[in-house]
Design a protein around this nucleic acid. Structure first.
Lengths: 127, 127, 127, 127
DNA sequence: GTGGTCTAGACCACC
DNA sequence: GTGGTCTAGACCACA
């Protein structure tokens, strides 16, 4: 049964999230040059204008820095990246726990469900 | 620092989620009558047409049943509700774990972060 | 694949159609007494008020005649019934042919499709 | 004598049927762009929101595909269109035959009535 | 300029 | 009085 809540998130935000995750988990390090609009457009299979918008938003958040005629670079401000990392972690945890409790789960049931999930997850990893 | 990913979800879907959660956690039981368009509109502080759209979507998903001139009722199909509950639980777990791993967390770190979060959470509950 | 056009026809009209058909094909003859509201309500599994509305509409069309405290009777005006019969036949043919041509069928293709359908139909009748 | 069964079908469904027919008979080919909300609203002389609802339903049925900021396009899934065409044909035949038999026509009388109708129909075409 | 959402208010069909 | 449809017009997201 497919969940009845469609995914309406704009494409440029989905890409922004993906790129932020790649930066925060170290795929791109501070100072690294991100792919050009066209390259990233091909990677994500979207129009390069969509990538442009993504980079603009990331620049506004301070995560990247664009240099005219040179490219888009990951910020050197490691503190900012760390804060962002921590902030996203907390958001994910908050969202997950709050939605599960909205579904009627107590803290104990939540822990139980989480354990079961990870158990199944690691088993399936052996395949 | 506020997370740089805005929430663009349409209001009628937010309300749909909220109502589904209320049904699934038992606030409304199978066969119960939901608030009328106007009542729910006042509750959620939106126009009654937005509620109408919400109810249409929920009816299409089989979660509720509308009877003209009478009202909107929670389905009596407990099986469907159970399946929906299970499905939503899995979706939430999947989304949480997949995003955390995208952020670079290993399974162990994930468990660790989760435990810490719940620890802080239950401590703050004593306040 | 289920056709994407739902059936929104009001219940009282569906019942009216069914009763008219029963009269026109002779299940009820001119002068016959129709079931009471309550009886018909049980037959069609609807509220007796819905039957009341059905009978009112049929009376307005002259097909039946209600006598206070006695019941609802099929009209004795055979001419009216004949005209109604002819009229419904033409409507059905018109609607069918016009929709099929709207779907792009020529007269020849229409005849062909109709013959095929009746062929399959009579074959399946042997089962 | 006008048939006593009114047509209460919602406008947005009538338009949906009309557009589906136009697509299925080839007025719009797979991949073609349908008129915008406003254009179609002017064509059918309804509010653009009614067209919006029509397009939403057609998109849900997979007949069209909407691209934000670009337009609404006929699906490229020819198989789906073929199935829909076949399904609508069968529905029309089923409805016609079942209603005629409900009216008391035997298969032979049905064939006879159909032939007569087409005969008159083609004669009138010469006018 | 396109689709998508939302509002405010009207009218209708049904119960 | 409930759900269902439709209008008219506004604003936003996206391309």
């Amino acid at each position: 049964m497919s969940t009845p809540f469609g995914n309406n998130e704009p494409v440029y935000l989905q890409i922004m999230r993906e790129l932020c995750y790649q930066i925060l988990r170290g795929d791109y390090k501070p100072g690294d040059r991100l792919p050009t609009w066209v390259e990233a457009g091909l990677q994500f299979n979207v129009n390069h204008n969509t990538i442009a918008r993504t980079y603009i938003e990331m620049a506004r958040a301070g995560i990247v820095e664009t240099r005219r005629g040179s490219g888009t670079y990951v910020t050197n401000d490691q503190t900012l990246l760390d804060r962002l990392h921590e902030s996203l972690k907390k958001d994910l945890l908050n969202e997950f726990v709050s939605k599960m409790t909205s579904l009627g789960y107590s803290i104990e049931e939540l822990e139980q469900a989480f354990r079961e999930y990870l158990h199944d997850y690691s088993e399936s990893a052996f395949l």
